[in-house]
Simulated scan of single mutants.
Amino acid sequence: MSDTPTPPDANPQGGAPQDQPSLTVLAQYLKDLSFENPRAPGVYQSNAQPKIDVNVDVQGRALNTNQYEVELSVSARANRDNEEAMFVVEASYAGVFEITGVPREQLEMVMLVECPRLLFPFMRQIVADATRNGNFPPLMLEPIDFMSIYVANAQRRNAEGAQNGAAQNAAPEGQA
């Protein structure tokens, strides 16, 4: 018998304490990948540096109780001197996550911050491989601060909600 007291939140049968937040990756997969090289082979005759625009999107949806699919999408386009694109790469990489013990008001944050944080290194490799296989230098995506994006989007939604609420309150009777 041990003299060490059992913490009040510990599970006496061993394992994880009850109601502790848990995030488990059940599956990861490539949903879509497209690479376009519309100016080949002429694109390889110039050494000018392209301008690369990258867009990132994260979507999440419930599959069933405590299971969610989170999809990380990246689109990158390289242009040089207002010409047609040198290359365009689009990819969607997703995962199925089991999320338990997370308060309902924090679930969206976990899905849109923590889940894509786990998916990002795989997406980064997919984009780098696709551009390298197109005979371009690998496009190494910079690390993404998903928390900052989440906070900025939440602030924007709150500001829009406040503006919409103020507009409805200012509307004449019968027009709200």
Rank of each mutant, 00 (worst) to 15 (best):
M1D: 15
D3W: 09
T4R: 11
T6G: 03
P7A: 10
P8Y: 04
N11P: 06
P12L: 03
A16Q: 15
P21K: 05
S22A: 15
L23R: 02
T24W: 12
V25S: 05
L26M: 11
L26V: 11
A27R: 11
Y29A: 13
L30C: 11
L30D: 09
K31G: 13
D32I: 10
L33R: 04
F35E: 04
E36F: 07
E36I: 10
N37Y: 01
P38D: 05
R39P: 01
V43C: 07
V43K: 01
Q45R: 12
S46P: 08
N47V: 11
N47L: 12
I52N: 02
D57I: 06
V58H: 02
V58I: 10
V58T: 13
A62N: 14
L63S: 03
L63P: 07
Y68R: 00
E69N: 02
V70S: 00
L72Q: 04
S73L: 05
V74K: 01
S75E: 05
A76C: 04
R77S: 09
N79W: 00
N79G: 02
N79F: 06
R80Q: 12
D81Q: 11
D81H: 04
N82L: 04
N82Q: 12
N82T: 04
E83N: 12
E83M: 08
V88Q: 07
V88G: 02
V89W: 00
E90R: 02
A91R: 00
S92D: 08
A94T: 03
A94R: 00
G95I: 01
G95S: 03
V96Q: 01
E98C: 07
I99Y: 01
I99Q: 01
G101D: 09
G101C: 09
V102R: 08
V102N: 05
V102A: 07
R104C: 02
E105Q: 15
E105F: 13
E105G: 09
Q106H: 14
L107P: 01
V110W: 04
L112N: 05
L112A: 02
E114L: 03
P116F: 06
P116I: 05
L118C: 10
F120N: 06
F120L: 10
F120I: 08
F122W: 07
R124W: 04
V127L: 13
V127D: 03
A130W: 01
T131C: 09
R132F: 14
R132H: 15
N133D: 15
G134F: 02
F136M: 12
F136A: 02
F136W: 13
P137E: 15
P137G: 14
M140L: 15
L141I: 14
P143Q: 13
I144L: 15
F146S: 04
M147C: 08
V151K: 11
V151Q: 14
V151W: 07
A154M: 14
R156K: 14
R156N: 12
R157N: 12
A162K: 13
A162W: 02
N164L: 15
G165M: 13
A167K: 13
A167L: 10
Q168R: 15
A170M: 12
A171Y: 03
A171D: 06
P172T: 03
E173W: 08
E173C: 08
G174K: 07
G174F: 06
Q175N: 11
